[in-house]
Nucleic acid binder design. Structure first.
Lengths: 207, 207
DNA sequence: GTCTATAGCTGGATAGAC
DNA sequence: GTCTATCCAGCTATAGAC
């Protein structure tokens, strides 16, 4: 990848983090990158194209970084802990914000919507791997189908990220509660065979 | 409230729903409202002021509408069902999208951030009421503190809304899984006294 | 309270020199 | 591959007629 292209992608992430989707333009990005505004169109065709590329790049790079951490997760609580770390680290780097903001921008830009969905799927795929491994034969796996759960977690994570932008304390409060919920789910995970069977039956009856 | 002001607020909601935060401007909103663009500044001072007003209005009106439904909720599953209805109904009306998009716009606009946080708190307050009533003395209430849980639910809901804009099928999959998770939590809610005690002990040990 | 008109700026996008 | 220069559309915001 070209040096200038990379600079533009990095600058897009930075601009998205600091200004939000409403603050991005070929000019603001190019200024941040220290290159000429026309290069946005030369390299990416349009601002939307650059946003899409940045969205994909941010997700790809970061998922690579966290793959090893994910691989070591053996419980829901640990998964939550990784999520917390990721939240902290990426809040400053801006990679989660990129997803949140491009997601918001996807409303009126089908091309960006496709790219953002693809970027999100990178994370979702990682989550599916972890969940498959963690849940294994626990009662949780039986009903909380892994693909759906992975998507719910990713969406909730994005929502929390955005929420934190408007109300940091509220978001922190929510995060603490999620830790507690993790304990509950872990409890389910550790159920004895008898109680576990009761749960299974109960669940089958309600679905 | 003035007729024109109302028209502008309604048009803002509509524009936010159809174009996203990146697509709003005094002109696009005024055109949708069928009034002159200068009136945005006359009535609301700035586009940001109008966004803030729309955010507050959308949340207030809708919370009023759903208060009765919320009051009849007696279980987590029912709460989820109301959430699903709200999701469906408001996706078309655009009131949830307003929150999601103004939340995204809050990144670089402190005034809008404050207004959006206030709007979200309207929903959070409703949720707290319901959760307090539902959870009562269940084992869940002991650790999943209600204020944090209410905020987590609101944030997740917003995240799902945004996610649905980029990947409708993925969002639907996630929603289905949340229904299942509701069953699990209800199971916890119905635990016998013995198992319930085991859970409490376990939880105390981990926090 | 609502309109027209306009100043002044920033936006996307392209042509063409280098 | 990068730059300057430029077109034109759209933007916020204000002044002033009605």
């Amino acid at each position: 990848m070209n040096q200038t292209k990379r600079k533009l992608v990095d600058a897009t992430i930075e601009t998205l983090r600091d200004q939000g989707i409403a603050g991005v333009s070929a000019r603001t990005i190019a200024t941040t990158a220290g290159v000429n505004q026309a290069l946005v169109f030369y390299h990416f065709g349009s601002v939307g194209g650059l946003l899409a590329a940045a969205s994909t790049a941010a997700a790809g790079q970061r998922a690579d970084l966290y793959r090893e951490r994910f691989a070591q997760v053996t419980s829901l609580r640990e998964l939550l802990a990784v999520g917390r770390d990721l939240h902290e680290a990426e809040r400053h780097a801006g990679n989660v914000t990129v997803l949140a903001q491009t997601l918001a921008g996807s409303q009126n830009d089908p091309e960006l919507a496709a790219a953002t969905a693809a970027a999100l799927n990178i994370w979702v795929a990682e989550l599916e791997l972890v969940l498959d491994r963690i849940l294994g034969d626990s009662p949780l796996a039986e009903l909380a189908d892994v693909p759906g759960l992975a998507r719910a977690i990713a969406a909730a994570f994005i929502g929390l990220e955005l929420y934190g932008g408007a109300d940091p304390q509220g978001a922190e409060q929510a995060l603490r509660t999620l830790d507690s919920l993790g304990s509950i789910l872990e409890f389910i995970d550790d159920l004895g065979p008898v109680t576990s069977r009761v749960l299974r039956t109960k669940i089958r009856r309600t679905t």
